[in-house]
Amino acid sequence: MKDREVSSGLARRHPPVTPGGKGRFGDFDVLGQVSRWDLVTAGVVLARLDTDPQLSFFTAEEEPTVRALTDLLLGQHDEPRVPVVEMLDKRLLAGETDGWRYEDMPEDSDAWRRSLAALDDEARALHGERFSDLPPERQARIVQGVQDADEWHGFSAGHLWSLWTRYACSAFYSHPWTWNEIGFGGPAYPRGYKNMGVDRREGWERPEVDARDPVPWAERREEALRAHEERQDASPSEERDR
């Protein structure tokens, strides 16, 4: 039991960590429950707090590109960041796929390398710079272009988008800091739940600090982005917005 308390103490920080310091649940810290988790689960989850930035799968050339891409896909623009690239690196090195690939796609590891190279190719062709050196707005336009395309640099764009978002989201939303952000209770064995049902909470669960629906905000932001893009599309040449 003593060991568990030590690990719990190491994992917790005050105030609780959320990605980019963006929270909605005040002092809710899922890591405060570590002593109530079974040891096998605790080991697997706490290992994700490892932030050793030593990469093995991604090359030094690929690293800035994959960091920029995953930051964009996950809206991670501020520290502390969930170490998504480190998590993807481990996963791709181990060849841990989802157990299938689309017939028109290369194997996952290959698809990652080739698509990162394609992002740099596109950035250089459009703006004469590497993808990671572009300002975030230009990076975002390129990424939005992939989502909107049918075919992109020889990829079925939808299948590439699926690969990127599956890997990025499954890493990001497996991290306890993210659970703090969304108010998810995390591992629940052997503790379980006692208070189920609408508007019912366990003693250790927390209400939102601000209960307003954040999604209308997200929609406004998307509308603004679209308007911004339309203005850009209306500009006669790429030179103007350099």
Binding site: K22, R24, L72, L73, L74, G75, A140, V143, Q147, T165, R166, C169, S170, F172, Y173, S174, T178, W179, E181, I182, G183, F184, E208, D213, P214, V215, W217, A218, E219, R221, E222
Partner: peptide
């Protein structure tokens, strides 16, 4: 959460919009 993020992502949301939908998970 991971499976639900696929649901949100399938709407075309990414970046900040994805994060905001997910912050509303409960």
């Amino acid at each position: 959460p991971i499976t639900y993020s696929e649901h949100v992502s399938a709407q075309g949301h990414w970046g900040e919009a994805l994060r905001e939908y997910m912050r509303d998970y409960n």
